[in-house]
């Protein structure tokens, strides 16, 4: 039986019997969802103003479901290449556990659900932003940029940058400078984060013809870009401290975490051959995840527990 006919058979089986519950949960990319939940939660908590705790919870849930729906739609569209890539071959559609049509239906239903619920629970600007984010991720990134330009994740990264802004808008009803800064931190973080991964997963993307930067421009150019974006990220990450969004505590920790980020980016830039080069790229990738969680955590703690750091003496003189 040819590879193609096996694929058709798997699709047919999945359409007939359907997958188990956890297969549908996998379609929602739970790991990506956790980052979205956290950053939107921080956006919601640091925003000035009040929101009913239950409505706040519903807002976070809606944003998470919207992100999950985007994941399902992404897997529906990318089913043809996911099966050929090591990183994505275990996803439910390539394994024949869920059909493409089911993923599409789940994605569309959850998108509509999340947009309506967010609008009803908070405000329609937040809802429109969520709709825009889902649309941007699917139509601009997945369908257009991903397979056509090495700048795919730079522009497409905007989709992943919106959650804290949506959280902020859910509370305030408007887009302000602070929410734009939260957006920019994730926007500038995405390229070094994703290119670090692409450096050691380069062959995967090459095999399926996705023009990731290391595939098109080569690993050396990618290393330079990672370093450039890391410097920009460092500068942007300090901004909250100068616009009143973060204080001295945030400034201190963001400088420290940023220096480690820059050090790893520099290591990636300098060490270019052998297994050690891949290992360093992987280290940067993993650290970048911690880094974003850390930055947003400090911002959150500083806002929610204003006295949390007083005993350390950091606040003296402010």
């Amino acid at each position: 039986m040819s590879e193609l006919s096996i694929a058709y058979q798997q699709e047919e089986d999945a359409q007939t019997f359907g997958g188990d519950v956890q297969d549908y949960v996998q379609l929602l990319k739970p790991r990506v969802m956790s980052l979205v939940v956290f950053t939107s939660f921080v956006g919601l908590m640091v925003a000035p103003g009040d929101i009913h705790p239950f409505l706040g919870l519903v807002a976070i849930l809606s944003i998470a479901i919207g992100a999950g729906a985007s994941g399902a739609l992404n897997m529906w569209y990318d089913a043809d290449i996911d099966g050929k890539m090591q990183r994505t071959a275990a996803r439910p559609i390539p394994r024949g556990l869920v059909s493409k049509n089911e993923a599409l239906a789940l994605g569309v239903v959850l998108s509509v659900f999340s947009i309506i619920v967010l609008g009803l629970a908070t405000n329609w600007l937040a809802s429109a932003l969520l709709a825009g984010t889902i649309g941007f991720y699917i139509f601009i990134y997945t369908m257009w940029l991903k397979r056509s330009t090495p700048q795919n994740i730079v522009i497409g990264g905007a989709a992943g940058s919106f959650p804290p802004m949506i959280g902020w808008v859910a509370v305030t009803g408007s887009i302000s400078l602070e929410s734009v800064v939260l957006f920019l931190i994730i926007f500038m973080w995405t390229p070094p984060h994703f290119w670090a991964l692409a450096l050691y997963r380069c062959r995967d993307y090459e095999r399926v013809g996705v023009p990731m930067l290391p595939v098109v421009k080569g690993p050396d150019a990618t290393r330079s870009q990672i370093l450039i974006y890391s410097f920009i990220l460092f500068a942007v990450s300090l901004t909250p401290a100068f616009i009143g969004l973060g204080g001295l505590i945030y400034l201190t920790f963001s400088v420290m975490a940023g220096i480690v980020f820059l050090y790893l980016a520099l290591q990636v830039y300098r060490v270019r051959v052998g297994n050690i080069a891949d290992a360093i790229a992987k280290k940067l990738f993993l650290y970048s995840i911690f880094y974003l969680f850390f930055l947003f955590s400090v911002l959150l703690i500083e806002h929610v527990v204003p006295g949390a750091f007083y005993s350390t003496g950091f606040q003296v003189g402010i």
């Binding site: 009913h52 409505l55 659900f113 619920v117 009803l120 629970a121």
Partner: peptide, 13 residues
């Protein structure tokens, strides 16, 4: 859960 959610949102708003 969807029904309960809509009910709760309505009551709170």
């Amino acid at each position: 859960a969807f029904v309960v959610l809509f009910y709760a949102i309505t009551i709170i708003r």
